[in-house]
Simulated scan of single mutants.
Amino acid sequence: MNGSPLRFGVVGCASIAWRRMLPALVANPDVRLVAIASRDAAKAARFCDRFGGEPVAGYGELLDRPDVDAVYVPLPPMIHTEWVERALLAGKHVLSEKPLAPTEAEATALVELASARDLALVESFMFLCHSQHVTVRKLVADGVIGELRNLTAEFAFPAKASADIRYVPDVGGGALTDIGVYPVRTALMYLGSDLEVVGSTLHFDPARGVDLGGTALLSTPNGVTAQLTFGMEHSYRSRYELWGSAGRVVVQWAYTPPPTHSPLIRIEQQDRIEELTLPPEDQFGNVVRAFVARVRDGIPSGLEGDAVLAQAALVDRVRASAVVRPSR
């Protein structure tokens, strides 16, 4: 590929693509947007009118194009597996929306296929590419809060419109699949993959056939705990905190900060409170740069392989352990 732009196709016209990823893709000088596919030709044309590229009616037709090196897959979680697999079999590098797949078994099969075909397969878990979390990890490593005792992570938002794909079991898959992965990945980031699921709950809507929210209590072998909350029947919350023997650090807007937002990190100790205001940055733009570097130069992105599989495995364990209650 040398120094030529990475030629991208987009498989699906999701809201996240329109709002965040496509602006980041077209802003990157190392990317050229070639085509955008939808099952609805008019929708593909509307996306291309704004972002460029050629509209394509049908996902398979886009994958057949020889002028596409890589694809971005922003489809709903429960149909990722089929189209990520088809993209890899077509010889395309893949940037997939999170989660890569709804189960560990499916994620493992996709990771193994990408490895066998020497293709990049990156999960677009954008919050992991924001430097505010690097700052927090350094604070913890420097002993600012002493020995870590507990992690709390919360991501939830109000109910969506009744037609939202998250409420469709075989498309969106419910809250744990689509939303719970954020606090789950936060626990893995700070506590490692050797986590026991002490207990979990899911709030289930029998009319829709999906979970609308839930909780999980996790523990490391040496007793550091994590309390996770997620859902789509709450007021908005997007934060986590780390509580140690000498203080705590709180990330106020952890998962979905817009590119103009200046992150605020709050440090609380026995005799002082400090707030760090960090420069704004576009975490979606950071994902695109990481993906291009992975494809061009083989630089690990931190959004692939074992980390993705650890996340899928922990989600499976949370689901398997859950006490299911009817949603109110």
Rank of each mutant, 00 (worst) to 15 (best):
Y167T: 08
P169L: 06
D170K: 08
D170Q: 13
G172T: 03
G173C: 00
G173V: 01
G174T: 03
A175P: 06
A175F: 05
A175W: 05
L176K: 00
T177W: 00
T177K: 01
D178S: 14
D178L: 12
D178M: 10
I179C: 02
G180L: 01
V181T: 11
V181H: 09
Y182A: 11
V184R: 00
R185V: 07
T186Q: 01
M189S: 06
M189D: 11
M189Y: 03
Y190K: 01
L191F: 03
L191T: 04
L191C: 06
L191N: 06
S193Q: 13
S193M: 05
D194P: 05
D194F: 05
D194S: 15
D194K: 13
L195Y: 08
E196I: 05
V197M: 08
V197D: 10
V197H: 08
V197C: 11
V198R: 12
V198S: 07
V198P: 06
G199M: 06
G199F: 01
G199H: 08
G199Q: 12
S200L: 05
S200R: 07
T201F: 11
T201W: 09
L202E: 04
H203P: 00
D205L: 06
P206S: 12
A207H: 11
R208Y: 07
R208D: 07
G209Y: 09
G209H: 10
G209Q: 11
V210G: 02
V210I: 08
D211T: 06
L212M: 14
G213A: 12
G214S: 05
T215G: 10
A216Q: 13
A216I: 10
A216Y: 10
L217H: 14
L217M: 07
L218Q: 08
L218M: 08
P221V: 03
P221M: 09
N222W: 15
G223T: 14
V224M: 07
Q227F: 08
Q227A: 12
L228K: 11
L228E: 11
T229M: 12
F230Y: 15
F230T: 03
E233N: 14
E233M: 14
H234M: 14
S235G: 14
Y236V: 13
Y236P: 06
S238P: 07
R239M: 14
Y240L: 04
Y240Q: 03
Y240N: 02
E241I: 00
W243S: 15
W243L: 15
W243K: 15
G244L: 02
G244P: 01
S245G: 01
S245P: 02
A246D: 09
G247E: 02
R248V: 02
R248T: 05
V249E: 03
V250E: 07
V251R: 00
Q252I: 03
Q252D: 12
A254P: 02
P257R: 05
P258M: 00
P259Q: 09
T260E: 09
T260Q: 10
T260M: 02
S262E: 12
P263G: 08
P263S: 08
P263Q: 09
P263V: 06
P263Y: 05
L264T: 12
I265G: 01
I267V: 14
Q269T: 13
Q269C: 02
R272M: 10
I273L: 07
I273K: 07
I273C: 07
E274V: 10
L278D: 11
P279E: 15
P280G: 09
